[in-house]
Write a protein that binds this DNA or RNA. Structure first.
Lengths: 219, 219
DNA sequence: CCCCGGCCATGACTTATGTCAATTGGCAGT
DNA sequence: ACTGCCAATTGACATAAGTCATGGCCGGGG
């Protein structure tokens, strides 16, 4: 059990942690690979240790919606269904902890603290999805981008307003925000012209006017 | 305890049901009224008994996003947070069961079956939100409308393809689908012209080509 | 060092959706 | 039956976003 700061483990006894450990596995995945596909059986719950992954849904006609961008500490695969209704792809080389779902849920029945932690995680995910839903329904392109910036700033390790590493491609931004890549490009240009942000290099974002970004992103 | 078919109660003993009953109250609410406002303390969990309500989020600048349309049997207010991050408004006169949230969750700790039922409900809500998110990110106006039609058809009591009562106004449709009322009107006209649907009167929908609607709505 | 290929940016144009305003249509109350 | 009201439709127009095409930039492999 090398990753102990995880919310899943809060308040558990040493014995309980040891039991978790019996069905936890460490998993590595290369950048751009899929951890699992949409509709595959929901055998495991994962916890991101390092790197970054996206949760995405692809429809029969090829349109893709990115549902979430996950960082170390984040969970995925928590569901009551017997299959995932999304796929998970790595943005970077990534390491994850993999827990057998059935056994994790079984243990959670015995250990109230563990169950409470899982519920807390679900609740956080739900709140994020609601924000995202609102953004997609009501916001214009440049506002959606600001929403993304705030997400990156708040959640990406090491991010500061002065420097945020854009590990997502323009296409990923588009798929996360329900836009096309060209609209993303143009909206970035607009925000640059307005002096709200700067993009010193392709994959570096500098938020010049944080208040403006927050205002535009506001849910 | 007059409403016994509810999923929340599946598998509970008579004694357990009696305990639930001690903190359940029946609540009536007139059409168009708010059951609670956004950011109000999350004191209760509700179960819709009759009528229909919407879950909605309104931002500081006045834009409104309807997150869900709920029917008898549906739950709302399930959260781990101490406040709701949405408001609930009735579309029709409605009756609901109100459960004190703290006491319900307390009982759920004692009664694993009850906890499992709550988890099942949360899971269903989550799946719906994911579909909705995808629709808002990727679909055109007339496709979004078809998505709504399928929702109504599947969930509204008494709905058949030949006759669906539109208890939602055009504005509600717009706010649910992230569109304007005019676009809703025009997209309805388009679907009528294409022979996919008919609207015999303002609030009655007749799906003429169900396959086409399903195809357009597909998530 | 140079070339190639994958992103990204940008321009020109199209289209979907939003905005504003006028009109219609149904319904309730008199 | 008339009136007034509210919701929905429709038209004319504006604008945001999508589409298609081109060219630039940068990094990796030869």
């Amino acid at each position: 059990m090398i990753y102990n700061e995880c919310i899943l483990f809060h308040g558990l006894t040493y014995t309980e942690l040891k039991m978790l450990d019996t069905f936890a596995e460490q998993k590595k995945i290369a950048a751009g690979k899929y951890l699992f596909d949409q509709n595959s059986p929901s055998d495991n719950v994962y916890n991101v240790i390092s790197g970054s992954v996206t949760v995405e849904r692809i429809s029969s006609n090829g349109r893709r919606q990115i549902i979430g961008i996950l960082y170390p500490g984040d969970f995925l695969g928590i569901t009551n269904s017997d299959h995932y209704d999304y796929a998970v792809r790595s943005l970077t080389d990534a390491e994850l902890y993999q827990f057998n779902r059935k056994r994790l849920y079984g243990l959670a029945k015995e250990v109230p603290h563990l169950k409470a932690n899982i519920d807390q995680i679900s609740s956080t995910i739900f709140a994020r999805i609601l924000d995202h839903l609102y953004i997609l329904g009501q916001k214009k392109a440049h506002e959606r981008l600001c929403f993304l910036f705030i997400q990156l700033l708040e959640r990406q390790p090491g991010a500061t307003p002065e420097r945020i590493d854009l590990i997502v491609s323009r296409q990923d931004m588009a798929d996360y925000l329900g836009l096309t890549i060209e609209t993303v490009s143009r909206s970035l240009a607009k925000l640059k012209n307005d002096g709200v942000i700067a993009i010193p290099s392709l994959n570096h974002l500098n938020i010049l006017d944080l208040d403006a970004v927050k205002e535009l992103a506001d849910t």
